[in-house]
């Protein structure tokens, strides 16, 4: 039983890490209907810029601030150069544009900062909490709890931003109906630039957490693959959906790997997450928290 709890809790905490990446996707999709394939590349760019500045002996907070500025810059430029010329184009065109953006960001990041992996420490050790190990024989990492707390704070901040600020309300208006939002004087370009900048900030947070876990290297771009089943399950437009989806995917893939894996040769967790997501699609195509689409015909 102890082992089951350990696997379950470990899975939930791993799921929080997936949610961090999924949040970036949700923000952009919610405001612009664009599935941003480049979110993984943004995570990589943010983490690589931050760690490279740290390695140049920059102060932690200054490095964080400058990276944030870089990510906001990337967001604004993306809106200007990639999205604005494609306004009113079909969603598939915008999606293809973000695929192109992925390769540009990956290439630029490596051109500027090199392709070497870097270590990143945030001062919180990724080791089990001793008292929990000794008393209950359960291994929970301090860093996993820290990442969960950061995710919680991020979701709370985003919820406040969406609900309580003028920009947040404008964002929701754009998400609900582009035409209506334009009619009441909300600038679509302005909103898109803001949302891409916020997604850049989320990418920075995700990059820092994943960077501590695996090192900062090109493979950070693969974190996007972990977010996809979370999005399918939680819904592309829901911030709470990203969190709940992450928890379900994290827990179920770990339990499957540990309890089903040995019977089928192991290594099943990466595709098992998609099995769960596809099963959800069959019964709830819009995801757990996605908006139900009703077409009048």
């Amino acid at each position: 039983m102890t082992f089951f709890i350990e696997v379950l809790v470990g899975g939930l905490l791993a799921g929080v890490m997936y949610s961090l990446v999924a949040l970036g996707f949700v923000l952009i999709y919610k405001a612009s209907g664009v599935f941003n394939f480049a979110q993984g590349a943004m995570v990589f760019l943010a983490a690589l810029t931050f760690v490279s500045l740290l390695e140049m002996n920059w102060n932690f907070w200054l490095a964080l601030l400058v990276t944030l500025v870089v990510m906001v810059g990337v967001g604004v430029l993306t809106e200007r150069i990639v999205l604005r010329p494609l306004v009113n184009q079909p969603p598939i065109t915008l999606f293809m544009a973000t695929i192109g953006l992925t390769f540009v960001l990956e290439g630029l990041s490596q051109m500027v900062w090199g392709s070497q992996p870097h270590g990143l420490e945030l001062g919180i050790a990724d080791v089990p909490m001793e008292w929990l190990s000794q008393k209950w024989n359960i291994n929970i990492s301090k860093f996993d709890l820290f990442a969960a707390a950061v995710s919680g704070l991020l979701v709370a901040a985003l919820a406040l931003f969406f609900q309580k600020t003028r920009i947040g309300r404008a964002l929701r208006a754009v998400a609900d109906d582009h035409q209506a939002a334009l009619a009441v004087g909300i600038s679509l370009q302005h909103i898109w630039a803001i949302v891409w900048a916020v997604a850049g900030f989320v990418a920075l947070v995700a990059g820092m957490m994943w960077g501590v876990r695996n090192g900062v290297q090109y493979a950070l771009t693969f974190t996007a693959l972990k977010a996809l089943p979370v999005l399918i399950l939680g819904g592309f437009e829901s911030v709470p959906g990203a969190i709940i989806g992450g928890l379900i995917i994290g827990a179920s893939e770990k339990l499957a790997e540990v309890y089903l894996g040995p019977y089928v040769g192991g290594g099943i967790e990466s595709w098992f997450a998609y099995v769960i997501a596809l099963l959800f699609l069959l019964v709830r195509p819009q995801g757990l928290f996605g908006e139900k689409i009703i077409d009048r015909v």
Binding site: G11, A14, N139, F222, V258, G267
Partner: peptide
């Protein structure tokens, strides 16, 4: 023998085993 799916950026279940 414990398999880690590509790319291997998540190994919690293997190490719990």
């Amino acid at each position: 023998l414990l398999a880690v799916p590509h790319p291997g950026n998540e190994q919690q279940s293997q190490w719990l085993q």
